[in-house]
Design a protein around this nucleic acid. Structure first.
Lengths: 305, 305
DNA sequence: CCTTCGCTTCCGGTGAACGGAAGGAACCCT
DNA sequence: AGGGTTCCTTCCGTTCACCGGAAGCGAAGG
């Protein structure tokens, strides 16, 4: 294979592919390996780079693919993958390809910010899902990105690009805007100085405009994003607060965009989303969610019916 | 291929671990660290032992607790935990305790046997959940144990001990019996020669009796466990088949045991559970689930294997 | 005050990890 | 059949990253 293989970050990326972390290129013997490609020379670092070779579009990899993706010699990859497989972090299928193993998932399921949160939120998510029969999503912030923790999708609902465990930037998603609006100021400023990628013509990319959006989100307690990632979809999100009353997650509903002929008036979703988010906050022990003011009044926590 | 290709990883590092909570021998300073379960002295092995220090009852650990649990010197644990935290496999809370991090959960969510399966099964699980309004569970087998992959619990349903990501032995659970009944003969024999722990007086512990139960499960296409783990609960499980028509998972419903005054007649659940399991099998592309015979009445074709 | 406990840093010796190279098994395409 | 390609596995001498005891720190508590 000629040396051109992974030079470009996203030659394979289809339409709606999130800005996944830059895939590590080959060692790239062109001398000038520079400082950027800071590769941790530790064993642990190498193990991580192996795990990072797997992502939503690459769930099954051969040894050689792993080695290439992780930037490791095959013999090294072979040894480490062998250990990973022995423990159960990876599994080898009958086809010889490696996949992420059950044991690793099992440990991951102890993460409080994902499964812990999910456990308490699930009943309310279900109620909301039953009420709207569309896409319902729950996400948390990790650095400058959101990570989807749970997603309930009706088969006939508008198609969305999110995936449980998937990452997206903060600025073009309703959950992201909610989480950013309530993030520490350092994070906000940092994001506002980054280049804000446009996914559609409707994406907010101007820092000043985004700043206004965030202020509105804080004021209204909801974020509404129409066609910022996909012109067909509109999403409404509200913040979920934890014990110390900080925003720990965001909840959203995604419906067909009215500008594309969606039949749902987004404004009717706002009370339901806000109520469900408050319901989860209460389940988490948020102090303000136990008071009874603040929410207008349409519909109780059970969002209809 | 090599000796270990395909099939079960025979030697299996983790088969020895008793299914219950019992785990983690404290260093117990008695000098005699023995050779008992000595862990591989590789860096990777140490990292695994750190991850293993976390479990359902220990989701937040201090550095010292991790070191003790993993059987490592504090300074060593400190260095490795530092690397794990830097990558995101662990997170350190404001209280100084370490928890499993989002990044690790994220990689784990790429495991085909958990989330991959879950994604396709979810709509059907939801339908079943709506229909019965009780506990609905989905589990796979890993070695001599089951691992719960998904669980929907009604707040007012009978309380069960399972947890997403949790492990249980095969013989006392309905899902376990289904998975064991369709496991490779090697696994079955191996389990039948183990000591079968009794959780209640009703637990099957006699190998011959279990063998008859498994035959019945294969014949009927369902397993029914009444009070084998918890006298209050009864569960009904059915097999889920994958593309190659092997049993890849099991689905169950848990209701209050009729002998304890539960209001539901278990027999009425059988068709619903069986139908849901077939629905998931079909979603996974199982050949027999697309035909319309085979399960119509007990004593159908399938019996062998 | 001193003690205890847990976390962090330091540093010299050493053995585990490294990876090039060679061997082997499939699987192409002539 | 034969030569070419790709991928996996094993081997082994070199070296450097890992190891962990010890000491320093800060906080809690008696």
């Amino acid at each position: 294979m000629s040396p051109t293989t992974g030079a470009e970050p996203g030659p394979d990326a289809r339409a709606g592919r999130p800005p996944g972390r830059a895939r590590r290129g080959l060692p790239d013997g062109s001398g000038l390996s520079s400082s950027e490609g800071r590769r941790a020379p530790s064993v642990t670092g190498r193990v991580f780079s192996i795990l990072e070779a797997f992502d939503g579009d690459h769930r099954a990899l051969t040894l050689t693919e792993i080695a290439r993706g992780a930037g490791l010699p095959v013999s090294t990859a072979h040894r480490l993958v062998g250990e990973l497989t022995g423990w159960g972090a990876l599994e080898r299928g009958a086809d010889g390809a490696y996949r992420v193993g059950l044991r690793l998932w099992e440990v991951g399921s102890l993460a409080p910010r994902s499964v812990g949160l999910r456990e308490r939120a699930m009943p309310i998510l279900e109620d909301l899902y039953e009420a709207v029969r569309q896409n319902v999503q729950l996400a948390v912030r990790d650095g400058h990105e959101i990570v989807y923790v749970e997603r309930l999708a009706h088969p006939e609902a508008v198609r969305v690009f999110s995936r449980v465990g998937g990452r997206w930037p903060l600025h073009p998603t309703a959950v992201g805007q909610v989480l950013l609006a309530h993030a520490p100021p350092v994070v906000q400023e940092s994001v506002l100085t980054e280049r804000l990628v446009a996914y559609t013509p409707k994406t907010v990319t101007d820092p000043a405009a985004l700043r206004r959006v965030l202020a509105a989100v804080r004021r209204d307690g909801v974020a509404v994003c129409d066609g910022m990632i996909d012109l067909m979809a509109l999403s409404v999100a509200a913040p979920v607060r934890g014990e110390d009353d900080t925003v720990v997650a965001a909840l959203s509903v995604v419906v067909p965009s009215p500008s594309e002929g969606g039949g749902i008036e987004p404004r009717t979703l706002v009370p339901a989303v806000r109520a469900a988010a408050r319901g989860i906050s209460r389940a988490l022990g948020a102090p303000t969610a136990t008071r009874s003011d603040a929410v207008a009044r349409p519909g109780g926590p059970r969002a209809g019916s």
